[in-house]
Design a protein around this nucleic acid. Structure first.
Lengths: 264, 264
DNA sequence: CAAATTTGTGAAAAGATTGCCAGAATTTCC
DNA sequence: GGAAATTCTGGCAATCTTTTCACAAATTTG
């Protein structure tokens, strides 16, 4: 498993592969957005068409995911129930033994946060709606575009944190989750718990703007909007510790939206 | 026609539209702060039964949607063609002048992605099938359950996974709705909230001209006509960032009407 | 071609958002 | 309990965004 192969490199491969997309997508996406990931995301593909399953599996593995394939709904349900080790479920709707929608309904109570990406045939939009109504998180229509698939898989994994890497690196900033150690350029950065949580969310979304409300929800663990400028204040605290004068800035403002972490 | 069009803002529109004006039920109030969070979704209800139309409209509005009601198919078609200003179409099949299925067939070529939710009477499964075949995205059977209606409307409008794609590509321009990222040719494009909303509407209507008033309605979230050249000014801002000198132009002027996004 | 209409451009005023600070409230730790 | 660290609030200043308006440029019309 070529786990550590940087995703940016994998994206170059992507552009070589002829896209099976109906729409011509831009060349490769030029994704500088996923920085070094140090843990593997585990994906369960439940798909009864062998060739599509093979395609999905190969592409996802090329992009650094660990993939298991199961061909029918019943086996998938058993596997999920006995082993809750997946970060994402990719699901065909027409499945032998237990259809996709029933499968979602069965697993949702047990795994309320597991991201489920549904794959449907074209012209079956009522299925699509039914899937979303019954608890799928996202939906793709055949024929599947590789770029779109990867974009959505990443978006889903990013949304609720997915599987959290033990350590991450953005530019010259390293972030060690388990022992709460943060360094930039060898210099140790001491963060308070909230500051750490804020930088954690930024790290998990490195290269992507994060909205102020998303930050508030995840760092302050609440469902409402911030009623004060608390997010901004903490962003300043973290900035003061991370971005020293003379160093290139890592924490950028996205005006009217939120903040973004990344070299620029 | 006992229109409820007692809303002041409707005045200007009435004078401009030649045929019978639809009931204007959009709630006014351009709130700059909330347009960033959640753009108000605009729903067109085409329903000939006044009481059902009223019910739908009231409930949808209570849940934060802007709703217009039209009572016959022909007027609906005109309104849609004149302004591509809706995010969702809710459609009765039995309509005066132009039935629902014909309406769908007429608008699909122009609005390939507009979500259409059809409402049918019970015991008319052949209608249901016909509607789905001819391009409807989902189907509800009377009597309508409110929870079901809202669930399906939301499913259809879901930014990621519904019918509106998480990211779109036009030529070498890629647009990531979810995380507010826009790139052309690998070059990152930073947009202010309004610029982003404007480009979003253009992207959703790529390949088709969008009228100036439709842009104003959707980007500025209002029911009236622009009283200044604000749309043109913002189009220039977006152009300056998207169409750099030397690159093929993507944002074109459609004289006397509005603008169109697309390679050409 | 000139007049009329429509669209593009620059600049400045008005409006909003974000940065920053000082101090108050809360929690943690001894 | 008290000191220290952390978290939070509110306000003002700096910065950026939005809007308006006057005029220039482009296009259509007569």
């Amino acid at each position: 498993m070529n786990d550590l192969s940087s995703i940016a490199e994998a994206d170059k491969i992507e552009s070589k592969i002829k896209s099976k997309s109906p729409i011509q997508l831009s060349k490769g996406g030029t994704n500088l957005t996923d920085f070094n990931r140090t843990t593997t995301r585990r994906v369960l593909v439940v798909e009864d068409d062998a060739s599509l399953a093979g395609f999905l599996s190969a592409e996802l593995q090329d992009h650094g995911f660990a993939v298991d394939i199961i061909r029918d709904g019943e086996t998938a349900l058993n596997k999920l129930m006995e082993k809750s080790a997946y970060d994402l479920l990719i699901l065909e709707l027409n499945l032998p033994k237990l259809d996709g929608i029933s499968l979602i309904k069965h697993i949702r109570p047990t795994f309320p946060r597991l991201p489920v990406l549904v794959v449907t045939a074209r012209n079956r939009t009522e299925d699509k709606v039914a899937a979303l109504v019954s608890g799928a998180d996202d939906c793709l229509t055949k024929p599947i575009s590789l770029a779109e698939l990867l974009a959505r898989v990443r978006a889903l994994l990013r949304r609720n944190g997915g599987l959290i890497p033990i350590s991450s690196t953005v530019g010259d900033l390293t972030f060690h989750r388990e022992d709460r150690r943060v360094e930039r350029n060898g210099r140790r950065i001491e963060l308070t718990p909230r500051e750490f949580a804020l930088l954690d969310v930024m790290i998990q979304n490195a290269g992507h703007p994060v909205s102020r409300s998303a930050l508030f929800e995840r760092v302050w663990n609440t469902a409402s909007e911030p009623s004060t400028n608390i997010v901004d204040v903490y962003m300043k605290y973290v900035r003061d510790k991370v971005d020293h004068p003379g160093e290139p800035r890592l924490l950028h403002t996205v005006r009217g939206f939120g903040y973004e972490l990344g070299p620029k």
